[in-house]
Amino acid sequence: MDLVIINLIDGLFYGLLLFMLSSGLTLIFSMMGVLNFAHASFYMLGAYFAYQISMYLGFWMGLLIAPLLVGVVGALVERYGLRRVHQYGHVPELIFTFGLALLIEEVIKFFWGNNLMAYQEPEILKFALFSIGNNAVPAYKVFMIFTSVAIFIGLLYILTRTRIGMIIQAALSYPRTVEALGHNVPLIFMGVFGVGTALAGVAGVLAGPVLGTFPGMAFVLGSIVFVTIVIGGLGSLWGALVASLLLGWLTTFAASSSFPFASILESFGMQRPESLSDSYLRDLWTLTLPQIGPILPYILMVLILVFRPHGLFGKRDV
């Protein structure tokens, strides 16, 4: 029971981290119709910027400045890169963001090298807030959970309750009309791209100390973010939230279980063979759930695409 509660908390933490990444990505997609392959790279940039800033000004300034910097970089990329490529259609845009992801990784390796960075959580959050059984829950993780919930509420408020949010939503569906009403739609696009990448930057700043700050961090998380928004429904903020939490709990519970596939085979009345090397099912006899945990999200994505192609909350097909 203890383990279930602790896994719920861990899954919530991981799910909300995914949400911070996928919310920006889904926002950008719903606005521009562009799948930003470089999204996770902005997450990595956030972590590295924050690490560099934290060396001089401490963690909190890093948390404040790094996402802003990432947002500015994102906005510049939109203004001088994507906007030019946009006129040639979606495929060049995809290729552009794909190239950008590679470029950012190489730039990071050039300046910071291949080594892991010693990016640490702040001293005042370096303690175990409470324990369930013997398992400690670090204060930093709780702080992260609250920060991302606050970001979600703030984002939802801006999008649905403010004038800017209304214009953004209108620009989503009827860009020409909004433009005719005198609003600067390209500027809105740039702003949304900037905010989306800044959100990825926040995720990087917060996750860097926990998941490690190294040149492969974008690659590790990149594909799963796409899976999240496909499951949640492209362009849906609620969908991104639900899918993120779903994946967070799914991977956490899968990794912490030790469910053996042999028990399924036995429930079919099969006997474990004496010599496994002769059995054509030998892999199934020795496989456990944690070993295939990381592919579960992809299986879920395939199922969603087959049975509900527009995702859990999405309005349009992929």
């Binding site: 383990l3 602790i6 896994n7 861990d10 933490f13 991981y14 398992n135 926990v210 998941l211 590790v220 998380l221 799963i224 991977t251 956490t252 519970f253 899968a254 990794a255 912490s256 030790s258 944690p290 990381p294």
Partner: peptide, 11 residues
């Protein structure tokens, strides 16, 4: 492939 090792640590 593992992003978050916490579940393993809990076990």
């Amino acid at each position: 492939k593992v992003k978050d090792f916490t579940p393993y640590a809990r076990k």
